[in-house]
């Protein structure tokens, strides 16, 4: 198992390096920071622009290989260069990564757990009302793009706020400035953060739950008629107990394969969620930096995304090994 994981990790590492390099080269070729700098008012002189671009390692008059080597050398030393505004990419990246994590964690966990349970339940109640409801619900949710879902939730929240006359839901940014100044201080600030978290978390959880429910339902259907579930019932377990202890437990194993796929969807969803709800996380950064032509940031976020996707892959491998004893004893 350990050897197998190490080999997988090595393969992943090569893939990350290649993916990041490709992303850098693509961004450096396709984006045009010079034009953006020239557009500033007052219009800077060509020499100033050149100097600025060179300082940021963005000068399109420097040959691409050299720019790439400069960038790669920095990355190897743990330095992703500077943003367009001249700040260090590293510091900003960590700050924003935490923002994204705060945003995504709740939604992903909530959506995953709820989706798995819902999918398993739907499979057991196959073709009856709960199954139909869950299946069509999942269809509908999967057909709604994140940017539409978010707006719909905002719309609903606005109505709730108006009806109750409160600010139960808040959806701009992570917190209201000055929320912690009230009588309860820190508690107020916490409640305020929770209010801000509610809608984006729901946005993410809905999409994730729909995906997980679809997969889990299919996997669960496959084990419903499995011989070992029948054996468990022949031992004296009730249908429900046999399905939970033997069926669901086994049907969870292939789910780990879907995990890394679902994780990709999560990252993508985060871009829309962050943009729409005004969270200054990685997703928003990526979108903004592409618009601005900020090559270093684009490359850094690409690197970051590749690493997280691969970590998710490793995580699902490990999970697979934990859940499936057949893998633990397999060497390949």
């Amino acid at each position: 198992m350990a050897g197998f994981l190490l080999r997988r990790l090595a393969n992943y590492a090569v893939l990350v390096v290649l993916a990041a390099s490709l992303a850098y080269v693509l961004a450096a070729c396709a984006l045009n920071p010079r034009a953006n700098l020239m557009d500033r008012s007052p219009r800077p002189s060509a020499a100033v622009v050149d100097a600025e671009l060179t300082r940021l390692n963005l000068n399109d008059r420097t040959p691409l290989p050299r720019r790439y080597l400069t960038w790669a050398d920095g990355v190897l030393h743990g330095d992703f260069g500077h943003t367009w505004e001249g700040e260090s990419v590293n510091g900003e990246m960590w700050r924003r990564a935490w923002v994204s994590l705060r945003l995504l964690l709740g939604g992903a966990v909530l959506g995953g757990v709820f989706g798995v349970l819902l999918g398993a339940y739907a499979a057991v109640r196959r073709d009856r009302f709960p199954d139909r409801a869950a299946t069509y619900g999942a269809y509908l949710l999967l057909s709604v793009p994140v940017f539409v879902l978010a707006v719909l939730l905002q719309y609903a929240a606005e109505r709730v706020n108006a009806m109750t006359g409160t600010q139960l839901f808040a959806w701009v940014g992570e917190s209201t400035p000055g929320a912690g100044d009230g009588t309860f201080g820190g508690l107020d600030a916490l409640a305020d953060r929770a209010r801000h978290l509610l809608l984006p978390t729901l946005t993410i959880a809905f999409g994730q739950a729909a995906l997980y429910a679809r997969y889990q339902r299919g996997l669960m259907l496959d084990v419903l008629g499995a011989d070992f579930v029948r054996t468990a019932r022949a031992k004296g377990l009730t249908r429900r107990a046999a399905l939970l202890k033997h069926g669901l437990r086994t049907a969870l194993i292939p789910m780990t394969t879907y995990f890394s796929y679902t994780f990709g969807m999560l990252l993508l969803g985060s871009m829309f969620t962050e943009k729409i709800f005004g969270w200054h996380g990685m997703g928003e950064w990526l979108v903004d930096s592409i618009s601005r032509g900020d090559v270093n940031v684009v490359a850094a976020t690409a690197c970051f995304a590749a690493v997280t996707v691969l970590l998710a892959g490793v995580f699902s491998d490990v999970l697979y090994g934990i859940l499936d004893p057949r893998v633990r004893t397999r060497t390949r």
Partner: peptide
């Protein structure tokens, strides 16, 4: 099913055909 489950495995037991698929792969 509840009443049967108290009989199955206690008074009435079964041995199935395919021993590979009849045991749950994930439990000892």
């Amino acid at each position: 099913d509840g009443e049967m489950s108290r009989i199955r495995g206690k008074d009435l037991a079964m041995v199935f055909q395919d021993p590979l698929s009849s045991l749950t792969p994930v439990h000892a």
